[in-house]
Design a protein around this nucleic acid. Structure first.
Lengths: 137, 137
DNA sequence: TTCGTTGCAAACATTTTGCAGTTTC
DNA sequence: GAAACTGCAAAATGTTTGCAACGAA
């Protein structure tokens, strides 16, 4: 891996990611930071997110409604993803243990570097919306 | 949901999916079926994959190297994904139980419809390749 | 001074969509 | 015969990339 130099933009991206629980997409980060850094470009956000996740400083949650989502919390945990509104929520009690994961890797001869464990469905709000829509038709 | 009519193309897609363990992408299916159905179009493959997964006849594995991958095996199980070659393999012993998942849903007030549980890393082959590359540099 | 980082815009890749014709029931 | 399904091509979308200028060490 090449040498990594510090940069204002990357610091800002990481700071922002660590201040939110929303599991942001590249574009969300771009929109947020544009105010403070008017000349920021979306390409830079993508390049930094890719670099940070290669370094395991942040983690990929998965592609949700067409957009990759990221998480600055690298402590092992699962997620719930709402298929209607796209909200991602932490499920802290529900992480596969590092031990189990590594044991599985050994069993099959894989080198396990990470995981994505996402439950999918409808969040509380969207569950209600769907019920209302159905009763209207 | 609208009425569903049977169709030759959809039958063929499902038949193909059930005959392979490779967790195909839309394009892979398209390439395979083009020989037998020369006028098949990629849009049709996409439309059918979307419909089949809405009906829970197949399941989405996740986006791997930019392409959504699908699985006709709907029995709950986890996957291992190689980050280098993109291979997806079943981990049958390693499924979150339906009971646990529904219990979690109840606890948080979610309606859980499915899940993706993917370990990520390097498969046996790619592990060796990487080792060779490193010792060469 | 070196080389990693960035802005910009163009390029890329995958997926979706509108429409007219076809197939299913 | 109504409505779902399909082929085709264009559009839409998210992400990557080439290049020249900039910034960090």
């Amino acid at each position: 891996m090449a040498i990594v130099r510090r940069s204002q933009k990357r610091d800002a991206i990481l700071r922002l990611m660590r201040s939110t629980k929303c599991h942001p997409s590249a574009d969300w980060i771009y929109q947020q930071l544009k105010e403070q850094y008017p000349n920021l470009s979306l390409g830079t956000v993508y390049r930094n997110l890719n670099q940070l996740s290669e370094q395991h400083i942040i983690r990929r949650v998965g592609v949700i409604q067409g957009q990759e989502r990221f998480d600055a919390d690298t402590y092992p945990h699962a997620h719930f993803v709402c298929n209607r509104c796209g909200t991602v929520m932490d499920l802290p009690d529900c992480a596969p243990s590092e031990q189990d994961i590594q044991a599985l890797g050994k069993q099959y001869g894989f080198m396990v570097e990470g995981h994505e464990f996402n439950l999918r469905g409808l969040c509380q709000d969207c569950k209600h919306h769907i019920t209302l829509e159905e009763s209207a038709s």
